[in-house]
Design a protein around this nucleic acid. Structure first.
Lengths: 190, 190
DNA sequence: TTAACTCGTTGATATTTATCAAGAAAATTA
DNA sequence: TAATTTTCTTGATAAATATCAACGAGTTAA
């Protein structure tokens, strides 16, 4: 967990003791490549942070898997929307590599948040960062063409380009795998 | 401001005194129809809550105005993403009606949030609700067709359908005004 | 009241994108 | 290594969507 502790301290500004207290609520878990971290219909009652490996969030529409998120080191993987709405999860999350993660029940997290104001602030902060990402992606669907959305990933999300299969990236930016292939060809010959 | 006070108490669970304290930081402002609440490049240093009327957020791309948000009673209209990133606003917000709103500097808000833990929790809560909306819209771009996105508005956002001109709704769901017109025709004859 | 403007619709056409089918290249497994 | 599966590419065609142009109905403003 030390990698994540470093992240809490250096990136999120926690002090050493708070970081230890926060991490004490977690348990380490391994997911094998191809296994599910979460299936559609599961209750979302655990928060999960990836320490190593990456995962893909997807929904199944007309028998096809459509990617909605990718998760990497230090990312949270839980279905926050359905947790907030107290509904069952609608998301599948599958390991693309062997994953090492830490997990805590949401009840434990909420207790920490209510007892230690620093945690509450930190949760809010992490949430804001996540919001910025989501809002930017939403705006990109309104404003940009598929080609521009792809170039945006190339520029700002190299980890997605380098670690995720191309056909899964395609659905993430809202196009077919064939079309993404042609967009890439067009880019490379210009 | 009493309408918004009722909203704070009944919908967001604040008590009477906290609601009064919160509202004491605000000043009431009127915007005439067609005027700008905010222009691209403005510093985002004020939070604004609409009491009456509605407004449209848009960006200009290739000389065309593309709608990115609509704001109604009780909505916040500030450019949160650019505020968080400490950048200049990228959004234009224009009054579609005469608007009555209340405004507070962000510094004043942050002071209240740091002094009164209830405000901090409330801010987080409002933020979460906003996040759910944004994330759902992002997912709709990935998963749903333009027709389905429009039907979704008809079902869940009647205030948008009834109060916003159709060609502005079109860009909001990522299509041309002509295409939305044809989608509507198709729906009405089936 | 007339003139100008906004809004929605429709048709013709061009462009973009999806779908279907096949195969090559790369990675994984037996 | 051979076999299998996954991934990516390409071509042909179909479907979806944008663009351009025109028009009429309402609204707003002079």
């Amino acid at each position: 967990m030390n990698v994540y502790k470093d992240y809490l301290i250096s990136k999120l500004g926690m002090n050493n003791d708070d970081a230890d207290l926060f991490l004490s609520g977690f348990e380490e878990v391994i997911y094998k490549k191809g296994s599910f971290l979460q299936k559609e219909g599961d209750k979302c009652n655990v928060i999960r942070i990836i320490l190593e490996g990456c995962a893909r969030g997807f929904v199944v529409v007309n028998g096809k898997e459509i990617s909605t998120n990718f998760y990497f080191e230090n990312d949270h993987t839980y279905d926050y929307v359905n947790f907030l709405l107290n509904k069952k999860g609608t998301l599948n999350i599958k390991a693309l590599d062997t994953i090492r993660a830490i997990e805590m029940t949401i009840e434990a997290l909420e207790f920490l948040q209510s007892e230690v104001i620093g945690f509450h602030r930190m949760s809010f902060h992490m949430f804001k960062m996540n919001y910025i990402k989501t809002e930017n992606e939403r705006m990109n669907f309104i404003i940009k063409s598929p080609k521009e959305r792809y170039l945006n990933l190339v520029k700002n999300n190299k980890h997605i380009i380098s670690r995720i299969p191309q056909h899964q990236i395609a659905s993430y930016i809202g196009i077919s795998p064939e079309h993404l292939s042609r967009i890439r060809k067009e880019i490379s010959t210009s």
